[in-house]
Structures are given as structure tokens and as C-alpha cells.
């Protein structure tokens, strides 16, 4: 199987690159496009730190062969801070001490983005379920759950003030 040119819409921008046979979405983002926020943890879909949004749905990008998502819309952490401003989820993670060593943070924020896009008023159980595929070894999860709930509150307030 030869290498092929793959086109993706990454954070709203059309990107084309040459993908080696079997290249994963994660490897393509990191090595072909230089987007290194998504991390390679277990490389078998168990830790969640490689999570990106594919057409708005969280996916373990280490398990996705990139040619299978050609032409689709990919959102990574790099696309979250519009114009360099932290969004509600990111600022809540900072304010609630939801990040420590930082290795899980990109994946945690992406699943939180997908959750809040789908459900602006999540319960604590909803948040726990949303992040349950993402491993954090530092925080004990509690600050992350609190941060996502806080982000939801901030986002709802913004909608009201608009």
C-alpha cells in the first residue's frame, strides 16, 4: 500500500499531508501537522490522553487510521483557545487546579468540550461518565469534575449575558 495524500479540516482549516500506510490520526496530527497537544499515552485506547473531536465526537486518535477520517472535521486542543484567549473549560481547569503534571489535560479538556457542546447542563454523574475513559494519575479526579461543572456554569452565564 503506497503513502497517500490525506486532507482533513483541522480546527476549521483545510490541511493536506502525506500519510504513510497505517498512519494513525494521532501520529498525523503530531508528526505531519505539528499539533502536539494530543499525547501518546498507552497507544491502545485505554488512557484517553490522545482524545480529539472527530465531527464533534471524542475519539481516541491513537486508534483511528487517518485515511478513514479523510475530509472530516477534527478539533484539537490547539483549536480551543480562540484568538489566544482561554475558553471557559480551560480557564475553569486553571482556576480549579484541575491540572497537575498536564499529561492528561489535553484529553480531559476535549472530552469536556464535547460534553458541554452536547449537554450544557451536565450533572456530576454526566461529567464522571464523560471523563471515565481518561486516566489521571495526579489529581484524584475531583478537581477535574469540579472544573468541568464550573466551566458549564460559566458557559451558561455567557449565553445568558449575550
Amino acid at each position: 500500500m503506497p503513502s497517500q495524500i490525506v486532507s482533513l479540516i483541522v480546527n476549521g482549516e483545510q490541511r493536506e499531508f502525506i500519510a504513510a500506510p497505517g498512519a494513525t490520526l494521532l501520529a498525523s496530527l503530531r508528526e505531519s501537522l505539528g499539533l502536539t497537544a494530543a499525547k501518546r499515552g498507552c497507544a491502545q485506547g485505554a488512557c484517553g490522553t490522545c482524545t480529539v473531536l472527530v465531527d464533534g465526537r471524542p475519539e481516541a486518535s491513537c486508534l483511528v487510521a487517518v485515511e478513514t477520517v479523510a475530509g472530516r472535521s477534527i478539533r484539537t486542543l490547539e483549536g480551543v483557545a480562540a484568538g489566544g484567549e482561554l475558553d471557559e473549560v480551560q480557564s475553569a481547569f486553571v482556576d480549579c487546579f484541575a491540572t497537575q503534571c498536564g499529561f492528561c489535560t489535553a484529553g480531559m479538556i476535549m472530552v469536556a468540550e464535547a460534553l458541554l457542546d452536547a449537554n450544557p447542563e451536565p450533572s456530576e454523574e454526566d461529567v464522571i461518565e464523560a471523563i471515565s475513559g481518561n486516566v489521571c494519575r495526579c489529581t484524584g479526579y475531583r478537581p477535574i469534575v469540579i472544573a468541568v461543572l464550573e466551566a458549564a456554569r460559566r458557559r451558561r452565564e455567557q449565553v445568558v449575558s449575550r
Binding site: 498507552c42 485505554a46 461529567v127 464522571i128 461518565e129 475531583r142 469534575v145
Partner: peptide, 17 residues
């Protein structure tokens, strides 16, 4: 066989502290 099968508590197993 590896850390993917190594059991750790998840966010639902958090005690109140």
C-alpha cells in the same frame, strides 16, 4: 499483560475528602 489492563480507580471511585 500491560498497563491497559492494570486496574486503577476512576472518577466514579472518588471518596469525599
Amino acid at each position: 499483560r500491560d498497563f491497559a489492563g492494570y486496574l486503577m480507580p476512576g472518577p466514579a471511585d472518588i471518596p469525599v475528602q
